[in-house]
Nucleic acid binder design. Structure first.
Length: 499
RNA sequence: GCUCCGAUGGUGUAGUCCGGCCAAGCAUAUCGGCCUUUCGAGCCGACGACCCGGGUCCGAAUCCCGGUCGGAGCACCA
């Protein structure tokens, strides 16, 4: 090989073309984008989705759902939907059901459903094992003191209490007896760990608020890192993929695996995709819904799955977008441009075309004969049917205010499917029916008896105008020509989808 | 500040592990052309990127060092 490499490039090519002609004629085939293979796959894989039930799923969650679903479908195996509801302060009771519905809508089929609040005794048992080993201790330091000790790598007074005493404190706390202070259970790691985030961390804390599922049965609730470690092992997870925001959590969780001699799943952390222009914080959405600012979880301004579905985004769009984005470990920005373009591919063929005139302006067309307008429901495809109108002579019509403002005296424009008009001295006149010839601006129009229509847009600004009459009674995703795709939900309203 | 991570066109990615099929592919956006009675779809074309500086090597987007920039985490949230 070294000898080969000494040769000039030409020489190498010469030899290569004689001996291995194939390798020089490799064409670039267009590949369907595919997720990389998982490491360490031995047969089936077990993966999980672990949302907290603070609200329904939103755009941000869909990435994790799709990625995990793609892998469990590829390799076969289990996809566990695990509801992380060990913080009673952060639960929307309806969310348990909503999350499952959202997954099904996305085409994500989880094969097991686990609710953490039903597994508290298991967490207690795991905690007891760690306490007995001396790897966990009960602590009642003040929050500030606890943090200060960690930063200074010093042990708090409780760190050296005997396992027996810790166990008895633990039992009394979970036994719902009287409490003077609010103790926590701490997992011992390494006070000198270079990363302060990994030093002794809190595994359980007292929350007196009743839990929507378990009421007052428990008050000593495990925190995320503890449940995740215990459950990932108990549920036999083989692979865990999640965002880089969990890297430190993974380090913390590994201590429990080590203490208990558990086999680690294969971890993969991907870069965080920042999604701009929308509200994704469930707490903010909830606040807005309670205050009445938003109409509900499917309000057009929110980026919940419900809202996006209501606007007309397809499940396939989410899947393709996230598969195309891959598992890059670099943080990136979400691209609405690309997302919308993908969705357009899925909806264009099935969307009928109609005219909507935004900010309508009235015009009268002089010298116009009575005319029949025949408009395709879908361009160039007569088999899809037509919208047919008889327009009276010298009619009153409405055109978009935006277009109206751009018409100069002397301009001829085409009313699509009808005829041409020319503006002279501020008056509109019939200007023939010739479609071709001189290049004209082509605009949509509606007649006087059209219906008032509102488009609700995600930015909160609604567009008002007139919708052509033949659209009456037909709901679903349609394209309003020269305006955008929308999901028509009634004869007076549609939700804005995208251009 | 501490720990860790990363850097490919306007945007999103492929390639980086195992240096040569990469004078860098795809998508999207933009611009032009064709088609079309939509600013949609389709077809064709153009534009446009390996963060900077060193090093190793016949050869570096790919390996090494330094710098710069960016990000994630540092909760009794998940």
């Amino acid at each position: 090989m070294d000898q080969l490499n000494q040769l000039s490039l030409e020489k190498q090519l010469e030899i290569a073309s004689e001996k291995y002609p194939d390798i020089l004629h490799e064409e670039h085939k267009e590949k369907e984008k595919k997720l990389p293979e998982l490491k360490n796959v031995h047969g089936k894989v077990v993966m999980r989705l672990a949302p907290s039930p603070s609200g329904p799923l939103h755009l941000g969650h869909t990435r994790l759902c799709i990625l995990n679903d793609e892998y469990t479908k590829r390799y076969g195996g289990e996809l566990i939907l695990r509801i992380e509801d060990t913080n009673p302060n952060n639960i929307l009771p309806e969310a348990y059901e909503m999350i499952q519905e959202d997954c099904r809508w996305l085409g994500v089929n989880f094969t097991q459903y686990v609710v953490q609040s039903e597994r508290i005794p298991f967490y207690y048992e795991t905690a007891r094992s760690l306490i007995k080993q001396g790897n966990a201790y009960m602590c009642s330091c003040k929050v500030e003191d606890f943090k200060r000790d960690l930063m200074n790598s010093t042990a708090c007074p409780h760190r050296n209490i005997s396992p027996e005493e810790n166990l008895s404190i633990f039992e009394s706390v979970i036994g719902n007896g009287p409490l003077q202070e609010h103790p926590v259970l701490v997992i011992k790691t390494d006070l000198h760990h270079p990363n302060p985030a990994v030093r002794d961390w809190i595994a359980f804390r007292v929350i007196e608020k009743p839990h929507p599922h378990t009421g007052r049965k428990y008050r000593f609730f495990p925190l995320m890192n503890f449940c995740v470690a215990a459950d990932d092992h108990d549920l036999c997870l083989t692979h865990v993929i999640r965002g880089t925001d969990h890297i430190n959590n993974t380090e913390r969780q590994k201590y429990i695996f080590r203490y208990l001699g558990w086999k680690l799943p294969e971890y993969f952390h991907y870069g965080i995709i920042h999604i701009g222009d929308v509200i994704l914080k469930t707490s903010l959405m909830k606040k807005g819904i309670i205050s009445g600012e938003y109409t509900g979880w499917d309000d057009v301004r929110l980026a919940t799955l419900r809202s996006l579905a209501a606007r007309g985004y397809k499940p396939e769009t989410f899947r393709k977008y996230w598969v195309d984005s891959g598992l890059n470990d670099v943080n990136a920005d979400f691209s609405w441009e690309i997302f919308n373009s993908i969705n357009r591919q899925y909806i264009d063929k099935t969307s009928d075309r109609y005219f909507f005139v935004s900010s309508p302006e009235k015009i009268k067309v002089d010298d116009a004969p009575e005319t029949k307008a025949l408009l395709n429901l879908y361009p160039n495809d007569d088999s899809r049917g037509f919208r047919e109108y008889t327009v009276t002579k010298n009619p009153i019509l409405y055109i978009p205010g935006q277009d109206m403002s751009e018409i100069e005296n002397g301009d001829t424009i085409r009313l699509k499917g009808l005829y041409n008009i020319r503006k002279e001295d501020g008056i509109y006149r019939f200007a023939g029916t010739e479609v071709h010839g001189e290049k004209k601006k082509i605009i949509q129009w509606v007649s006087e008896d059209s219906i008032p229509f509102t488009i609700k847009k995600p930015d909160g600004d609604d567009d008002h105008g007139l919708l052509e009459k033949r659209a009456t009674g037909k709901n679903g995703i349609i394209q309003l020509e020269r305006y955008s795709f929308v999901n028509k939900v009634s004869d007076s309203t549609a939700l804005f989808l995208h251009k």
